[in-house]
Design a protein around this nucleic acid. Structure first.
Lengths: 290, 290
DNA sequence: ATGCCCCTATAAGAGGAGCTAATAGTTTGA
DNA sequence: TCAAACTATTAGCTCCTCTTATAGGGGCAT
């Protein structure tokens, strides 16, 4: 039902898929099942853009109400939890949680040492759900989606840099261009992760084709693959700063192109935040201003 | 959510399971998952009878509303279907649909030839769902459940008889008692079908243990297994009346015990029936009076 | 036209959710 | 004190729902 609602509101299978961290194929199949289960077509296939049938209109209205009610439950239950005032529950993807987030948290805990912080590492798709359903107060993530029921606060632009094995030939070059990646052995994020999709897009647009040798969903695994010479990779700068300093990796920027990924904070829109959450958000806002 | 609602309203895992045509185990697991997904316990396990926690109370209220809304959608959509006034959609289990139902339908169609009748054969569990969600107008089934959101109209008691292969020794006996089944090769309904459960209950209470050789969910398969001498079975009388006459099976009643199963009609309680449905229900009511 | 890029639909396969069956442990009632 | 009824737990299986890959259609540039 949530998928159907998003499908109608975005007017596009692919966008609805993106909002729910699914493939377009999944959305297409879901709609098919839905129509079978309801027993009548919900969408007019004839025309160019999506058009609801009369049955679809009824279903859409109901779906909207039901989804909203559904997502509200756990949130409301969480709100009645004891000692919830001192709790800050953050959902984060791994690469952000262990590096960027730690900086903010350290500051925050110095100021508010009484707050109990819980960080949950999840896939991007779960994070959205956790926040909508009140299992987490907020999330810091890369490529945050824009949903009507979630507030997205842009936080920073995280630089993406080229990570090379220590003695890689490219490391000796004066200026590195994006095109130099062509034909290189490449260690990539898993297909389906937002960062991977964005990078694929950029490389395809630039008609640069590295040879993707391995794919991992974990930044640590990527780093160790690079440092053991399996190939090069493009990773968030913060995740390799320490390794560059220690000399276990060679880190370079591209001369012709600045790569970055947007970081943002995700919060429920209909929020009744506790003090801890408000304080943390305020600090983030301050950090952003600087 | 429906399971949880039923669980609370019946106050029993097993009863909630029965209402949804599941095993008690499934209900137990569902609750566990639900509590995990909500993040807090919903039920007080300490005490004897079920008691909601404070989180459980909130969840129950919401679940009730959401389930009701959910089940209402398809029903409302169906109501707007064109030419729905001339349609009578019946969901039936196989053994009732092909025998008992045919009789009623023949009469009905003679009187209302303009009505388009659609009969869908389903498992009992799907039937309930079909009616709740308006994919079927009514159902005739054995052992109809009693749900608050469904109306159950008792229709008849269908005699259950012993079906024997043509030359089976038991067929020559004067009077047959239930106890004579002890040790006999038995062809049974599938575990999980209501009729099977009822028969198991009766046999266990009488401490009679036939040897269950085969289990089928289809009455036709059971009949052909019996007629080819694989064993004996207990089946609805109507399903073997023709075979008894043709001599392909031997049909006997028990001298010491009348076995039967209740047939009933299931209709949505909040019904806005069309003319066809009303007419059919009226005829059934008449048949019952006779 | 031709190619390209966007879209949606479909097929095939992998993985996980949710079921049953079996069984253990607990409580109730004769 | 035993039998019956209840809930919890485990293992195994099935079906559902995802992803990947691919086909086919429409709009827009070259």
């Amino acid at each position: 039902m949530r998928i159907f609602r998003d499908l109608i509101e975005t007017g596009s299978f692919s966008k609805a898929a993106e909002l729910n961290y699914l493939t377009q194929s999944a959305v297409s199949q879901q709609l098919k099942h839905l129509e079978k289960s309801v027993g009548r077509p919900l969408l007019d296939r004839g025309s160019r853009q999506l058009k609801l049938t009369s049955a679809g209109r009824i279903f859409y209205r109901a779906a909207k109400r039901i989804v909203a009610a559904y997502e509200d439950i756990t949130a409301r239950i969480q709100a009645t939890a004891p000692e919830s005032d001192q709790r800050l529950r953050i959902a984060a993807i791994y690469s952000v949680g262990t590096y960027v987030l730690q900086r903010y948290l350290k500051d925050f805990l110095r100021r508010c040492p009484e707050v109990k912080v819980e960080v949950d590492y999840q896939k991007a798709s779960r994070i959205c759900d956790d926040i909508l359903r009140g299992r987490a107060d907020l999330s810091i993530m890369a490529y945050p989606v824009h949903r009507r029921d979630l507030q997205t606060i842009p936080l920073a632009d995280e630089e993406l840099v080229l990570a090379l094995p220590k003695l890689h030939p490219l490391g000796r070059r004066e200026a590195l261009n994006l095109a130099d990646l062509a034909g290189q052995d490449f260690i990539a994020f898993d297909r389906g992760t937002p960062t991977r999709k964005a990078l694929d897009h950029i490389l395809r647009a630039a008609k640069v084709r590295p040879k993707v040798r391995m794919e991992f969903d974990n930044i640590e695994t990527i780093k160790s693959a690079v440092s053991s010479g399996m190939g090069v990779s493009i990773v968030p700068e913060a995740t390799v700063a320490a390794d560059a300093k220690a000399g276990s990796l060679c880190v370079r920027r591209f001369a012709d192109r600045r790569l970055s990924r947007p970081l943002g904070v995700l919060v429920r829109k209909s929020r009744r935040e506790n003090r801890a959450v408000r304080a943390f958000l305020k600090q983030l806002d301050g950090a952003r201003a600087r």
